[in-house]
Design a protein around this nucleic acid. Structure first.
Lengths: 136, 136
DNA sequence: TATAATTCCTCTAGCCACTAGAGCCTCAAG
DNA sequence: CTTGAGGCTCTAGTGGCTAGAGGAATTATA
């Protein structure tokens, strides 16, 4: 049996976040001690690790709900899990693409070596979209 | 003089967002018509364009507050503007780096062609961090 | 000029995934 | 039995908007 603090240390999920996940229904309400404190089992630990890991990989709480559900049913086909993961991969890839365009633009405008704001490329570019190289 | 709707169309910023910016103090409270509707000048238009453009480049509202402030003082040195922009560039770059690690991991796990959840790499990897290639 | 259609107003609440803090209670070690 | 660490619930805040209710003003058409 683990206290919420022990669970937190083992998984790296902060205590308020664990309680938040409970409220969101991602993890079951655990048993309580006589004094009403949460007491977790190994099952609770691995479920939370699963969640932590999925969050690290950037899955949304809703995605995780689906993935957790699937993980409870080993006999199901795993195409659903693949769909969730593949969709997420695509999201990640399009975010990367967008950030790379930003990076390019920011690199360009931060090159400016003007002395004051009147002729500064950063300010000038922000004031006038026409000076940009790419769409964003 | 523009109504809020005209301003919205010209800048591409949605009407509630314009009111939100006003509330946040990013734009001045404009004059009002007799019937209490907002009426903007060209100055208001260019200030909002500046904001829109900065948001497109991913600057936070707080950053934009600083940049707007600088843009009002053309005689100031532009090192402050550069600091804001360079810091933001670094943020963008570290976000890209993080997303690329995610992308790599997601690509790896979505390659799995198991038939059901019991042996599915997606689920398995999520359940066990030890199966990952990189830190995240 | 009368009316209809469109736009605008304020206000409140919701989104996501947490995080912070107040004020109190429980637990384990010495 | 005391003490200090850790736990409890509850409310509110974060960022950057977005949605909707219920009503008033403006503009276009007849």
């Amino acid at each position: 049996m683990f206290s919420i603090g022990q669970l937190s240390k083992r998984t790296g999920v902060k205590i308020p976040t664990i309680r938040y996940y409970e409220q969101m229904g991602l993890i079951d309400e655990p048993e309580r001690s006589e004094g009403n404190q949460r007491r977790y089992t190994k099952d609770g630990l691995s479920r939370l690790s699963f969640i932590r890991h999925s969050r690290d990989l950037g899955f949304s709480v809703e995605d995780i709900r689906g993935l957790l559900d699937l993980s409870q049913h080993p006999e199901k086909p795993c195409s659903d899990a693949h769909n969730i993961a593949t969709q997420h991969l695509q999201d990640v890839q399009s975010r990367i693409a967008k950030l790379r365009r930003l990076e390019r633009e920011l690199k360009r405008i931060t090159k400016c070596d003007a002395g004051n704001v009147a002729t500064c490329a950063v300010i000038e570019t922000l004031a006038d979209h026409g000076l940009c190289e790419t769409e964003h």
